[in-house]
């Protein structure tokens, strides 16, 4: 290591390709950046997974096996309420991030609780929609189209469920440990996750419900 330490003088030589000024890399990034970036990569991989379900939905859209089509099944009003719930929850999630940054526990709990409640309302609406579809004989086993529909929308719903579980865990963590650096990093990841689910939902309501019910 002495060699490593002693060789660190005489800048700029040694790089055969360098022309003019070379900006030296400053070294490893801070932990918050590393964690956030890693989670960002995970989110992108999650979005790629969703893209497969979207692809399957797009291909199987017309394969209704003489069963009901999207236009006959989808209730636009319900979808609109679901969407508003998620958009508001994204907003309250942002408020929770700000509250955490200024270390305001009360506002943090309020905003997180609002986020969780909005998420639960969304899930309840989705569950009701699914139950109604199954009850009228339009369950996922009815046709390839419904298979793709239930899988894509259900996969998003499962993500929201996992998000709510995570949300509760984070509230408990802040309650027990306060705004420690590692917990702040996890909150950053949670916020990213929640906002990303919203982006996926934008694709879901546009492609599945709106495009899927155009004649």
């Amino acid at each position: 290591m002495a060699i490593a330490a002693t060789a660190g003088h005489g800048h700029g030589h040694g790089d055969p390709h360098h022309i003019g000024l070379v900006i030296e890399h400053p070294g490893p990034a801070p932990k918050r950046v590393v964690t956030g970036f890693g989670f960002w990569i995970f989110l992108l991989s999650d979005i790629v997974m969703f893209s497969c379900f979207f692809a399957a939905y797009a291909v199987l859209l017309g394969q209704t096996a003489d069963g009901p089509k999207g236009a006959e099944l989808f209730d636009q009003r319900n979808v609109a309420i679901e969407t508003v719930c998620l958009l508001l929850s994204s907003f309250t999630c942002g408020m929770a991030s700000i509250a955490a940054d200024v270390r305001n526990r009360l506002w943090f709990y309020l905003a997180m609780a609002a986020t969780g409640v909005l998420g639960l309302i969304f899930l309840a609406l989705e569950f009701r929609e699914f139950a109604a579809l199954v009850a009228r004989g339009a369950g996922p086993t009815r046709s390839a189209f419904l298979t793709a529909f239930f899988t894509l929308v259900g996969c998003h719903g499962l993500h929201v469920t996992a998000g709510i579980l995570w949300l509760l865990t984070m509230m408990a963590q802040v309650f027990a440990k306060g705004f420690r650096a590692d917990i702040m990093r996890r909150l950053l990841c949670f916020a990213l996750f929640w906002h990303a689910l919203d982006i996926i939902w934008v694709a879901v309501f546009s492609v599945v419900y709106l495009l899927g019910s155009t004649p």
């Binding site: 291909v59 199987l60 086993t141 046709s143 390839a144 298979t147 899988t151």
Partner: peptide, 13 residues
């Protein structure tokens, strides 16, 4: 769960 992504029935592909 008896879905129809890749079955020969019900429009699977």
């Amino acid at each position: 769960l008896g879905f129809h992504f890749f079955t020969n029935e019900a429009g699977g592909n």
